[in-house]
């Protein structure tokens, strides 16, 4: 309990290490989720809504990448960004940018795979009705995006959850540098290795709380929309 109170006290200490760790964690998670959503959602919609040769193989590759072990992704990005690697001149290793790159590599297949599966479930019936109504391809596409919006939010939240909880890849490419690349998960790992179990658990609780607040905010947005529907329904 004492350790937990210490963590809570640190939360209210301006310029403290914990606040910096939370800041880096949120920055990394939000940025990597946003980039992954920008890449993965259109890719998923494209794969899910079109019929083309090799679609089955592509889906299998995506599903495999969804289970990509974080340490493998971290290792790959490490080789790319290390001094002797092809992108070594960018000097990104042990920076938050490197962590974001590794996260994007991990999360984009999840976003693309899940959204492709959502779209392919809705698309055939929607396409048949839209064509029967004489809608243009553009209108059909926008209707498809609109219909999937709720599920897309869930996909993005899943990606965010994966990003904020990730430890393997970010510790390899971020290096857990104090005040620079240390995030909640790597801090928990460090404290566990040092034997500060209570402090580590307290950090874990804070991490869970952050995740809970963000998920609640996103889901209440969804509920607000549903309530609006209900009002219109009874009107």
């Amino acid at each position: 309990m004492q350790e937990f109170l210490k963590v809570v006290a640190q939360l209210f200490t301006p310029g403290g290490e914990l606040l910096k760790i939370i800041g880096v964690t949120l920055y990394m998670a939000f940025l990597s989720t946003t980039i992954s959503a920008c890449l993965g959602l259109p890719l998923g919609v494209l794969i899910g809504s079109r019929r083309f040769r090799g679609k089955g193989v592509l889906m299998r590759v995506l599903n495999t990448l969804m289970g990509l072990p974080p340490v493998v992704a971290g290792l790959l990005v490490f080789f790319l960004l290390s001094r002797s690697g092809p992108l070594g001149s960018l000097k990104l290793l042990y920076t938050v940018s490197a962590m974001v790159i590794a996260q994007v590599l991990l999360i984009t297949p999840i976003v693309a795979g899940l959204s492709a599966s959502i779209v392919s479930g809705i698309s055939p019936r929607l396409r048949e009705t839209a064509r029967g109504m004489g809608l243009s391809r553009h209108a059909e596409f926008f209707c498809l995006l609109y219909e999937c919006r709720g599920q897309f939010l869930s996909v993005v939240l899943t990606a965010f959850g994966r990003s904020i909880a990730e430890v393997g890849a970010v510790s390899i490419v971020g290096g857990n540098v104090q005040y620079k690349t240390r995030v909640m998960t790597t801090a928990i790992m460090l404290e566990t290795n040092k034997g500060n179990f209570e402090f580590a658990v307290s950090l874990g609780v804070v991490l869970l709380l952050i995740s809970f607040i963000i998920n609640s905010a996103a889901l209440s947005l969804q509920e607000h929309e549903r309530k609006l529907h209900g009002e219109r329904r009874s009107a």
Binding site: E128, T129, G132
Partner: peptide, 9 residues
């Protein structure tokens, strides 16, 4: 052309 499928969306 109007087309009404069996299971409209």
């Amino acid at each position: 052309v109007s087309y009404m499928p069996q299971k409209p969306y």
